[in-house]
């Protein structure tokens, strides 16, 4: 890959880290049970990777970026999120 270096290494493309999908780092994958979910959005607040999206009546994962750290599962007050081993 060739990288063009701009004057002063100024990067005008904000948020371009989204091009890099960190989902490949994952060894365990979060699975949410929307029937148990109470939409408190604690997982959304604590997620270090902004990989959780709010939807009506719950949440949805962006598995392109979820690194599988498991914070959401541990902090869920109703245990609606379980971590399952990633299948190849």
């Amino acid at each position: 890959m060739t990288v063009k270096i701009t004057l002063g290494a100024i990067n005008k493309e904000h948020g371009s880290s989204r091009k890099y999908k960190t989902g490949g780092w994952r060894t365990v994958c979060p699975v949410v049970d929307l029937e148990k979910c109470i939409s408190c959005y604690r997982c959304y607040d604590y997620c270090p990777d902004a990989a959780i999206k709010k939807i009506e009546n719950g949440i949805e994962y962006d598995l392109d970026y979820c690194k599988g750290c498991g914070i959401c599962s541990k902090e869920c007050p109703v245990k609606a999120i379980v971590m399952v081993k990633e299948e190849k």
Binding site: S17, R18, A51, Y65
Partner: peptide, 11 residues
């Protein structure tokens, strides 16, 4: 603070 940053899992 966009996704795709390289912080360790659980940082």
């Amino acid at each position: 603070f966009a996704s795709g940053h390289r912080a360790c899992a659980g940082c």
